[in-house]
Design a protein around this nucleic acid. Structure first.
Lengths: 210, 210
DNA sequence: CCATTACGCTACGACCCGTAGCGAAAGGCT
DNA sequence: AGCCTTTCGCTACGGGTCGTAGCGTAATGG
């Protein structure tokens, strides 16, 4: 966590209510499901959480940061069990990610906060730290495992390896998001099978570039 | 075009001002550059366009539809010149698309309207018709040319061919958008070269699935 | 018991929304 | 020409949200 506006925890005075924290985040998710991003208001969230509006503003400066924190915890579920092959690992994590994007909270919130982040560097950093990096770690773990199995060669140039990791991440995450939110079509097993085949088949060609 | 709210063009009465139309769309783009999506207001756009606020609402029901129309024309620039090879065609169109996403108008607007469209089916359809389909046609043209050159086999199953088109489209568009807006890193020639190598190398593996 | 901070509550100015009502302008129709 | 119809600019309005200020009260630590 460690993300909301808590610059220096004071050692004196009444402490912040942890129950209020969780109630606010839960109320935010509920409001996202019910109203969506654009119709969600701070006053409504406060009412749902049984909390005064001023209590919200003591913790989050604006709607953007509140929603990022409310949605971020959902991405903690993402895991990468070792299924024995690169293709199986890819398919599993893609289906997991797609499952998250099916949820109405994330569907309406994720794109909205990313859109806002194009003009708000601190927000972009907050999203990166609490959501994006968590996904990216799965790519790194997947590549490491595939190398240990001998499915992928160990890249000699660390700079190139990083660039390929970045590419894979943008391709996988971007494709799933685009399929789910822009094309608005289901991320089903067949589509995932084709995507992972494309990746596994294409990785060799990319590595050959050097 | 043919997108704004003009259900049945009446043949009587004072006609709508075409100058006002263009002034409003231009003012909308300017406001997007200067203020971004979230701080753009209908009143401000009207003032910039030198037009009354009521004139806006006679044409567009809300901010979402106005912004979609204002941004859509930018996507008319996308073209697919025949560069002689599939890889060259891919790299060219990806760089073109990335150039569009670099512009502050599209950067702030595209994700925002897509986010809104998750709860607004008519808006989603409007985006699809005026923006997404225009991009997708490039994919179809590119595949047809590659087949004519003998770079790609002609798929026997039309259903499979459509599914692969969909996949390619989501992968390319999704990867570029994710790279530009989420990872917030440049879509430069080297990244594009790796992406197109991944695609060209992986297409064979996907086709082998049947 | 005192300093300090969080809390709930109320109230407030500022802003934006979307619409109504008006008189004037700009076309088509006969 | 005269009439009809629709658009235009303008003003004004109720309704809603924002983010903050001010207050008295509650909950900690020294």
């Amino acid at each position: 966590m460690r993300s909301r506006t808590t610059p220096d925890t004071p050692r004196t005075g009444r402490p912040r209510s942890a129950e209020a924290d969780e109630a606010i985040l839960e109320a935010t998710r509920a409001a996202l499901v019910e109203l969506g991003w654009s119709k969600l208001t701070m006053g409504d969230v406060a009412t749902r959480a049984g909390v005064a509006k001023t209590t919200l503003y003591r913790r989050w400066a604006n709607k953007n940061e509140l929603v990022v924190d409310a949605v971020a915890v959902l991405f903690d579920q993402l895991e990468l069990p070792d299924l024995g092959s690169l293709q199986a690992d890819i398919e599993h994590v893609v289906l997991q990610f797609a499952g998250l994007l099916e949820r109405p909270e994330t569907k309406t919130a994720l794109m909205a906060v990313v859109a806002e982040s194009t003009r708000d560097a601190p927000l972009r950093e907050r999203i990166r730290a609490s959501i994006v990096d968590r996904q990216k770690r799965l790519v790194l773990d997947g590549r490491r495992r595939a190398q240990e199995r001998g499915e992928l060669p160990s890249e000699r140039e660390p700079l190139t390896a990083d660039a390929i990791d970045d590419l894979i991440f943008d391709v996988v995450a971007g494709a799933v998001v685009h399929r789910a939110l822009v094309s608005a079509e289901p991320v089903d097993a067949q589509w995932v099978a084709r995507l992972s085949a494309l990746l596994v088949g294409g990785l060799g060609a990319v590595a050959a570039l050097g």
